[in-house]
């Protein structure tokens, strides 16, 4: 059985978007791209209310599907390199309504990122003042 093309594309888009949201914190923290999210997505799909899932899907669609073109880029978000994706997100953040659009993605990204025990351990393990 073949997996339908559209869900594959959606999954790819949301992963690319989340990778761009937290590219490389440093300080021993992994980049989002290095965080294994395979266990997160099914839990998110099961637990998130439909409005949150809808909002996240819509934001992903707009940011990955349209934002680069609206900002004058000639390549899709997926085809951009890391610096290009970062530039798109930061420019959208400064547009009217952009921060609100990005907020839902940011929250999901933070849920996914800190769901990784390595991230929790790295942050919490840092020495206390």
């Amino acid at each position: 059985m073949t997996t339908p093309a559209r869900p594959d594309a959606e999954a790819r888009w949301r992963d690319v978007l989340l990778d761009a949201m937290i590219p490389a914190p440093g300080g021993g923290l992994p980049a989002m791209a290095d965080v294994d999210r395979r266990a997160f997505w099914p839990r998110f799909e099961a637990a998130a209310p439909w409005l949150v899932r809808f909002g996240f899907a819509a934001a992903t669609f707009v940011l990955v599907g349209f934002a680069p073109w609206l900002l004058g880029r000639r390549r899709s978000f997926v085809a951009l390199d890391a610096a290009g994706r970062d530039d798109v997100l930061r420019r959208v953040d400064r547009l009217p309504g952009g921060a609100e659009l990005l907020q839902v993605v940011k929250i999901v990204a933070c849920f996914a990122y800190f769901d990784d025990p390595r991230v929790q351990a790295t942050v919490r393990g840092a020495p206390s003042p």
Binding site: M21, A24, P25, L89, Y113, F114
Partner: peptide
């Protein structure tokens, strides 16, 4: 940590 991070300013490299 999750909620604090989501409240911090910025996206992308700024959020990192």
């Amino acid at each position: 940590l999750t909620i604090l991070a989501a409240r911090l300013d910025g996206v992308g490299s700024d959020l990192s």
